[in-house]
Design a binder for these strands. Structure first.
Lengths: 223, 223
DNA sequence: CGCTACGTTGACGTCCCTCAATTTCGGTGG
DNA sequence: CCACCGAAATTGAGGGACGTCAACGTAGCG
């Protein structure tokens, strides 16, 4: 299993790192940490799916991303005393290893490349969310939803005979929260695309049938 | 001058770092780097103002943030070969010091705290943009604009006799791009608030007269 | 003093959010 | 295996927030 955090480290260096980690098993719906908790640990997902979402005082929430194994989360714990900016919830039975901040600090001292890798991961996340920020302010719902599907397909797509299956359990509500719209508009849009053979929209499931068609929707001018 | 990147380092360590840096002077409108350029250098702003903005294929852009002195930008250059995710443009005559990635790497080896500080800065940025992402998907324009003003006031506010001056030269267009709306709606909203004595809206200038009033707008339920 | 960029305001249209009523799906237990 | 239940999804109707276009006002600068 290739773990981005350990990129460029040789096997001999990685093993003791993994052995020094703790382990946590969660059932679907259980929480790794809540937004606002003091950030004590940094996790690497080994099995399952984890949703990172942000909630405001008004109760409305945005789904920042869905994580699959080998991904790092709770990275903010590596920086000095701080709180988690999002809530990490297991979307199914999940399994992660983790280190506390103190432990991580000493690991980084021994292995500076870890800090480099962590920074790279954060830089990537930053880039993605900035991109989505622009999208949500400049594109229409249809285009944002198409973007969301294409992005999901790119990093969690699975070839099946009907097309590309998005390998997450995602309700219309989830897709809406990722795209910055409502359950209803997301449902309507998917229904329409289903009718146009662009996708197969099932219960908590989407298969992309015609990626090129979605790409065309993304590119078309808003006006 | 306190520079966040050098937080927790003693004077003796900082001086050689600064001396090893290069310098760049830009006039208003000139560009430090373009979105998509290969990320070669990391900058610390010494004088002036720099706008970080993102542009899509459609030409529409989002203003991610406006930077003032001591802030770090182009941080992504610290990670291995990559491209800048945003364009950095001087909003006025500006002055920055910078290091190339190679130089930065060797500095980090000598001084691991640099990496920690850099990560902290990235984590903060990430948190902020995630927050704005949620806002733009769940709040109405009025609330987003109020949020933008309060945020600007918090890190670039300047007490003047009429209230809190936002110490940047920002057009209505800029405010709109930061809040995820249009020039027209931003103008209308500010005019309205001006009438209600909440703010003083001038040419490329905003003074917050009643912060509490803006806070109330942010908190009110969308419906 | 006129040019230019910024700002304001009105009218209009539309995207999409909201609310409500139904239907479909999947799992569970009789 | 079927009946039943709850969650997910669909669909329609209606309205409001806000984007778009156009015309005009205004401040700063050479």
């Amino acid at each position: 299993m290739k773990i981005p955090l350990f990129h460029d480290l040789c096997q001999d260096d990685v093993l003791p790192l993994i052995e020094s980690a703790h382990e946590k098993q969660l059932l679907a719906g259980e929480i790794f940490y809540f937004q606002g908790d003091t950030a004590e640990s940094m996790y690497v997902l080994i099995k399952g799916r984890v949703k990172l979402s942000q909630i405001g005082q008004d109760g409305k929430q945005a789904l920042i991303e869905v994580i699959k194994p080998t991904r790092l989360f709770g990275l903010v714990a590596m920086t000095s005393a701080s709180t988690y900016p999002v809530t990490a919830q297991a979307a199914m039975e999940s399994n992660a290893i983790y280190w506390t901040r103190i432990e991580m600090m000493s690991l980084v001292m021994r292995e500076p490349k870890l800090a480099m890798n962590a920074m790279r991961i954060m830089a990537d996340q930053l880039q993605e969310i900035q991109d989505r920020f622009r999208q949500v302010t400049t594109l229409r719902v249809e285009q944002r939803l198409a973007n969301t599907l294409m992005r999901l397909a790119a990093n969690s797509g699975k070839r099946v005979k009907e097309g590309i299956l998005i390998d997450h359990i995602l309700s219309r509500q989830d897709l809406a929260e990722m795209s910055g719209t409502t359950l209803y508009t997301a449902s309507r849009t998917l229904s329409q695309w289903h009718g146009q053979q662009l996708v197969i929209a099932g219960r908590e499931k989407v298969i992309i049938r015609n990626p090129h068609g979605l790409a065309r929707i993304i590119e078309q001018f808003p006006g």
